[in-house]
Design a protein around this nucleic acid. Structure first.
Lengths: 227, 227
DNA sequence: GCCATACCGAGAGCACTGCTCTTGACGGCG
DNA sequence: CGCCGTCAAGAGCAGTGCTCTCGGTATGGC
């Protein structure tokens, strides 16, 4: 007998099965998936699902957290060798490939907010895993001089960025952190554009164009290949 | 009596009223707004709405087209003076400000695709108005030499970009068009990030940071202030 | 001026949704 | 061994998109 009681173990398995079924429905119905349909798939009454998730929103929250964690893991497992440029690009491609493999989870997490849904605070920690991964790269590059610090940023924006830098990449100059956030935003935009169909009937060489964009962003961010 | 019959005029007004009410509901319910609720607001039976829109999807399509047109108009009305850099930045700010004023329409159009919704072909023409506006700026800049052409892009991606260039900015080098599309994608990403809450609790100086990003993208794109 | 026609609004109805409440039964812990 | 916590199921409520049918009304042709 494991430490967890049988009751608890069965419950955990059931919870996972519900989430798996819900993920399947995410593909067809998006964020407004039908709890009843999920229950039907599992051969149980819809009311039974409420034993495991108090509401549809709570189920969505679980899916969101899983998605963030899965994406965060993919980013952290990206090849971590070579220059800062290589590492950054590896994370970019890892994020893009995860999104291509899990398009509906990407939409759930980085698409339009679900109307009426308020993300609980449990979601913020897994949400920033990718950014922290990028932050580490920038921090390392900054420490080893693989970077153009660039013009400092004054005013309130400078203060904002200094505070973010303290949390995400201590020691890196705020302006570099600002450019890095911009790079992350561009990354999100590029993935969303590809996934949401904005490139349809224009650019077919998606991977090449993506890399082109990310390399372009990198030149502005100021990461250098290792000297 | 006007050229249009009274019947047709009343019908057009009714159609507009339905769209206006639907836009109001967009704010609370997003893309899955309730046709019945819209009908209730207008004091009519839900079935009557179907005289004007064959389905909820058709209503959404009308809202999408209106949103694209409204955004396109905002972009085209952006100050059209000064250097290519100034014009490009003016369009960026116009887009952002439109999105801030109409967040739910932005989400409808650039957010996650509505599940099960297939955009009809009528939407593509209004959809590209903003891109064409940017294309004109790049084309002008290219013609007047306000631009760094940059390294040519070979391979299939080069062909893709050449075809896009032909449509959106004839005469401009494909690599410049590629960088411009990347700039447009960054613009979309920056607006979405701000609107969808990714900047919450980090950067408060939204406008400054947005301009910072767009200027950064511009340096890479290679537009110069007029010489 | 009249009438067939096209259009329009209302209502009922179908199958579906999220969610609640009650009921009955089973299983693990003291 | 008994009891209590947990579970699944079913009925039910209010709401949804959409269809169909039914009367009423304005329009265009004669």
């Amino acid at each position: 007998m494991t430490a967890a009681s049988l009751r608890a173990r069965v419950r955990a398995e059931m919870t996972d099965e519900i989430k798996a079924a819900a993920r399947r429905h995410l593909a067809t119905d998006g964020a407004n998936l039908s709890l009843r349909a999920v229950a039907r798939d599992l051969g149980m009454a819809s009311s039974a699902v409420y034993r495991y998730f108090a509401s549809r929103d709570e189920l969505l929250t679980a899916l969101i957290i899983d998605a963030y964690d899965s994406l965060g893991e993919a980013a952290e497992n990206a090849p971590d060798t070579g220059s800062a440029v290589d590492r950054w690009l590896a994370v970019c491609h890892a994020v893009r490939e995860w999104a291509l493999a899990n398009p509906h989870e990407w939409a759930l997490v980085y698409g339009s907010p679900v109307p009426g849904y308020q993300a609980p605070t449990d979601t913020v920690e897994p949400a920033i895993r990718v950014i922290l991964t990028l932050g580490r790269i920038v921090q390392d590059a900054s420490a080893s001089g693989e970077v153009e610090p660039g013009e400092p940023i004054g005013g309130r924006l400078g203060e904002d960025l200094a505070m973010v830098a303290e949390r995400a990449a201590p020691g890196a100059p705020p302006q570099l952190v600002g450019r890095s956030i911009a790079g992350w935003i561009h990354l999100c935009g590029a993935v969303s554009a590809e996934l949401f169909g904005q490139l349809n009937n224009t650019i077919e060489q998606r991977r090449d164009f993506f890399e082109f964009q990310m390399r372009g962003a990198l030149t502005w961010i100021g990461l250098r290949a290792s000297s």
